[in-house]
């Protein structure tokens, strides 16, 4: 665990169980809407013990990081660039999931000198949010968490079968969203819904990029990544069978394998 200071606010991040080593390249994990660093618990540990300084960050106002929340994906992207600097680095490899994928995509476009590589899990050029979900989140109705769980996991994952023995991932995901302070989910979903720069950002990305998709993702279905395929100059793709939008939790090993192969080949 480490704490950084960005814009005068305390930022909490997991280091994957090993203190960052400035001599190693920095790998930053960015979570999705109303989640926190713990959704990267396996990936962060794996890479922390394999040649990277890992920062799995709690975005401002999420997890144990102080607020305020950022109002837009663009604002989070600028904040992320400042986080890399606050960690004592000029460059970082970025890995983002869902809203975190939008943030890292935008960061790679806006701050090309700071980004060594980009991995987008459940990435898309835009993530329009169902009005019913937006409304439930804005009203603080906990049906929003169940909608996210229902749509975020593949049908297979609805029955469980998690690789971590004994963990019930549907319950785990809902509990993570429940723990988020009021207003965070609504703010994050609104930020996703408003984001329109994905197509343009993709064209501006100059670093090697990996897109990891779930074959059963209905929140960012395959076609939603077409602007990324058309825009990003160096894009590799891995599709994880039977995974939904939350593939980083549903099939963490497959995500590790894909990311390991990508980072090793750079």
């Amino acid at each position: 665990m480490t704490e950084l200071l960005v814009r005068g606010a305390r930022v909490s991040a997991s280091c994957g169980g090993r203190e960052p080593d400035p001599s190693l390249p920095l790998l930053v994990f960015v979570h999705g809407a109303a989640l926190d660093r713990t959704c990267w618990q396996l990936q962060s540990r794996y890479f922390a013990f394999r040649g990277f300084s890992v920062v799995a960050v709690d975005l401002p106002g999420h997890g144990r990081s102080e607020g305020p929340l950022c109002a837009s994906v663009e604002e989070y992207a600028d904040w992320l660039a400042e986080l890399v600097e606050a960690a004592g680095y000029h460059q970082a490899h970025l890995v983002g999931h869902s809203m975190g994928a939008l943030i890292t995509l935008e960061a790679a476009a806006r701050h090309p000198g700071r980004i060594s590589s980009l991995t987008l899990c459940g990435g898309a050029a835009a993530i329009p949010v169902h009005p019913g979900l937006l409304s439930a989140a804005q009203n603080g109705d906990d049906i929003a968490y169940r909608l996210m769980a229902s749509w975020g996991h593949s049908r297979r994952s609805h029955l469980g079968g998690h690789p971590t023995p004994g963990l019930w991932m549907m319950g785990g995901s809902i509990r993570l969203w429940e723990r988020t302070p009021p207003g965070v989910l609504a703010s994050d979903l609104a930020a996703c819904d408003r984001y329109r720069r994905g197509r343009e950002a993709a064209r501006q990305v100059g670093c090697p990029t990996l897109l990891i998709s779930g074959s059963q993702d209905i929140m960012t279905p395959n076609r939603s990544a077409n602007p990324l395929r058309n825009g990003i100059k160096t894009l590799a793709e891995v599709t994880i069978e039977d995974a939904g939008h939350i593939m980083i939790v549903e099939q963490p090993d497959r995500v590790i394998d894909a990311l390991d192969g990508f980072l090793t080949g750079l």
């Binding site: 469980g160 079968g161 998690h162 023995p165 004994g166 963990l167 019930w168 549907m170 319950g171 785990g172």
Partner: peptide
Amino acid sequence: SNPTVAALEERLAALEGGVG
């Protein structure tokens, strides 16, 4: 841990509404 036992563990967590 054991795969047969893990199936039961997940099932019990699902029925009780827990995380595991």
